[in-house]
């Protein structure tokens, strides 16, 4: 097993942690933390993939773009969470289940 394989598997592991969080968590801000963890996994995977195929700089530049894009997502998500807190008085996503069926 090479270094790249280990790191790629590690990225999948981090992805799994993020997914686990999304399945279990109820606090909106913590859910955004889980989304960030997912993004870390993707960043890592991209760079490792670049390395594995001999295009490490390509992988790096894609990863930088992804970091920027996911920061935007984090900002939007947090702003949304703040609004939810203001309008609903809670961050619990269970309160966000009025639309169903």
């Amino acid at each position: 097993m090479t270094q790249t394989t280990v790191l790629l598997l590690g990225a999948v592991g981090v992805l799994g942690v993020g997914l686990y969080g999304l399945l279990r968590l109820r606090n909106l801000i913590q859910i955004i933390v889980a989304l960030q963890i997912l993004a870390k996994a993707a960043v890592l995977a991209l760079v490792v993939a670049g390395k594995a195929s001999g295009h490490v700089n390509l992988g790096q530049s894609l990863a930088v773009t992804v970091i920027v894009a996911d920061t935007v997502i984090a900002v939007v998500g947090l702003a949304l969470a703040v609004q939810v807190r203001r309008r609903l008085g809670t961050l619990d996503v269970k309160a966000l289940a009025t639309l169903r069926g």
């Binding site: 090479t2 790249t4 394989t5 790629l8 598997l9 390395k51 594995a52 195929s53 001999g54």
Partner: peptide, 8 residues
């Protein structure tokens, strides 16, 4: 991923 190519 088991079979990651290693064309490093």
């Amino acid at each position: 991923i088991q079979a990651t190519p290693t064309s490093s």
